[in-house]
Design a binder for these strands. Structure first.
Length: 201
DNA sequence: CAAACGATTTTCT
DNA sequence: GAAAATCGTTTGG
């Protein structure tokens, strides 16, 4: 079942980030279908969060997507070479987002290997926000796309993830955010080998 | 208009 | 473990 708009339009972005673990991210790019189970996410709580691009209500050409009604993709280029995939949540005017940081490959693994220029199936195929986008063919071309479309959506596997298997910790790469860097807004599936190897862990 | 800078990954030592 | 790769966005002059 594809997650409906109402899923993304809930109030609590932290809860949504947690709920997205175990869901299946599906892309159809250039006619080929690829998918994976979401195993790591981070919540970005809009204007009150120093780590968010929309902190303080900042609105620019890049961040305007974040102010859309929940259920669209926000994809931007990081460090000039990595496409990072976010899901926009909450309602219009509230720029909440969830960064998808890692997935466990499901369908189209051969395609992912080709896109990642790899010959064997290893965790490094999709164990980070930049590399999972590369594996799924996600680029800034999909920025602003609805998650109800045929090319990009998230579905419920129907298999519940046990709460005791979810780990909450601090976010990665946001040291500049001061006290907000200490918030437990990063979630991942315990012992899953596809969780990213963040610096300093 | 010029310059600095990342919500990262890879490669080399 | 350190450093490079690399470019759109943002910010300041």
């Amino acid at each position: 079942m594809i997650l409906p708009p109402s899923f993304y339009r809930q109030e609590d972005v932290v809860l949504i980030a947690k709920s997205l673990l175990g869901k299946i991210l599906v892309t159809k790019v250039e006619g080929v279908c690829t998918s994976g189970i979401i195993v790591e996410t981070e919540a970005y709580e809009g204007i009150t969060d120093r780590a968010s691009h929309a902190f303080g209500g900042k609105q620019t050409a890049r961040t305007e997507i974040m102010y859309e009604n929940g259920g669209v993709a926000y994809i931007y280029l990081c460090y000039g070479l990595h496409h990072l995939f976010n899901v926009i949540t909450n309602t219009s005017g509230v720029p909440h987002a969830v960064l998808i940081r890692a997935i466990e490959p499901l369908k189209g693994i051969d395609i992912m290997l080709k896109r990642r220029n790899k010959i064997s199936f290893q965790p490094s195929l999709t164990n980070g926000p930049g590399v999972l986008s590369q594996a799924l063919g996600i680029t800034t071309k999909l920025n602003g796309n609805s998650l109800q479309g045929t090319d990009l959506f998230i579905e419920d596997s129907g298999i519940p993830l046990l709460p005791e298997n979810i780990v909450a910790t601090t976010r990665v790469g946001v040291a500049y955010a001061g006290k907000d860097a200490l918030l437990p807004y990063r979630f991942y599936v315990q012992r899953n080998v596809f969780v990213s190897k963040a610096k300093g862990l």
